[in-house]
Amino acid sequence: MSSPTTNAALGGGAQVKSAVRTIELLEYFAGNTGMHSLAEVQEQTGYPKSSLYMLLRTLTELGWVETDATGTRYGIGVRALLVGSSYIDGDAVVAAARPTLDLLSEDTGETIHLARLDGANVVYLATRQSQHSLRPFTRIGRRLPAYATSHGKALLATHTDEQIRRLLPEQLEPLTEHTHTDREELIEELAEVRARGYAVDREENTLGVRCFGVAIPYRSPARDAVSVSVPVARLSPGREETIRHALFDARDRLTLATRHF
């Protein structure tokens, strides 16, 4: 599970190796919800069972990992929530974006997301729920492949084609039947995204939901983007046009709000 490149860059010493394993173990639990047996974790990580057990016990005592009633299954602990919350609470972009996200939510009545590019994925930093009973739901902290979301594609479009080829594999894992699975086809679409200034997720992430996203250009390539998610059943050509204008207005406001970042 550990990255040879990462370990080499960190020096590969025993103390650093232990730190890398700790982080990778926490990331494993964060990406695999629920409780997991020691054997399951060992199979996925490849760590020696004896050292894995000691690491899990230490993390459990410190609150980073929790166990079930039997003490034999493990999952992410409350300490991870506290650290994650502090990241959101202390992030300058999230704070600066709040008024714009509120306004975009009022203008569209739909679900709004602020997301950040993290490698080949996007991580949700803030959300505003739709005012309608039929609405998509995404929790803060969720990670999704950038190529399957509108804000992810808006962010990828701020990179060069060669940068995208280095970032993504040739074959992409589908989330739905509409997801791009060919990197070169995705790159062709990203050229269109650059030309029109926004990206569209056409049920590529969740069936029945279409999303529109724009990047916030306070740095280049862009790191953050905002999106509007709409159930297809509620989307008409006129409605789509209204959402695009609202997104462009939000991008202008966010560009102004983050101009010193």
Rank of each mutant, 00 (worst) to 15 (best):
R259Y: 00
Y53L: 11
Y74F: 15
Q163K: 09
V230L: 10
S130L: 02
D201G: 13
D102C: 08
A120I: 02
D201H: 07
E189K: 09
E24Q: 13
I88S: 04
F137W: 03
S50I: 12
E240A: 10
G152K: 04
A80K: 06
T179F: 08
V230W: 04
A14N: 01
T158K: 00
D68V: 09
R210K: 15
V230G: 02
E24I: 06
C211I: 03
T176Y: 07
Y218K: 06
T60S: 12
R251G: 03
T100R: 05
H260N: 14
Q131V: 15
A146H: 01
T242A: 14
E240V: 10
S105M: 00
I76K: 05
P237M: 08
P48R: 05
A80C: 10
A215D: 08
R116G: 03
E170S: 12
G119T: 05
H36F: 12
L190E: 03
E106S: 12
A120R: 05
D224S: 04
T6H: 12
L62I: 08
Q15S: 14
D252N: 14
W64H: 02
D161K: 10
N32E: 06
R219D: 12
S150R: 09
R223T: 11
N32Y: 06
T258I: 12
G12F: 12
D252Y: 01
H178F: 00
T255A: 15
E240D: 01
A80M: 06
T58P: 02
A96M: 10
E162I: 05
Y53E: 10
E204T: 15
E66C: 14
A154S: 15
L125Y: 14
E192Y: 05
A148H: 11
E189Q: 14
H36A: 15
F137E: 14
L81H: 12
L101G: 07
R244T: 09
L25H: 00
Y87H: 09
T22K: 02
D91T: 08
T108S: 09
L247S: 07
V226Y: 04
A115M: 11
D249Q: 12
A246R: 02
K49T: 14
E189R: 14
Q44V: 05
T6R: 03
T258S: 15
I187H: 00
T258Q: 13
R139W: 09
Y198K: 08
R219S: 15
R135P: 02
L256R: 12
L81K: 05
E43Y: 09
T181S: 07
S50P: 09
R183V: 04
S236K: 14
G90K: 03
L82C: 05
A92Y: 00
V200M: 10
A157L: 03
T181C: 13
K153D: 02
V83E: 09
F212A: 02
V122S: 01
V193C: 01
M35F: 14
R219W: 05
A96P: 05
L56P: 03
S86K: 13
A19Y: 01
I164E: 03
E188K: 07
G238C: 01
Y28W: 07
Y53N: 11
E185M: 10
Y74T: 10
Q42S: 10
S227P: 11
G141T: 06
L247M: 11
V228F: 00
S105P: 02
S2D: 06
Y124M: 01
A225H: 03
M54H: 00
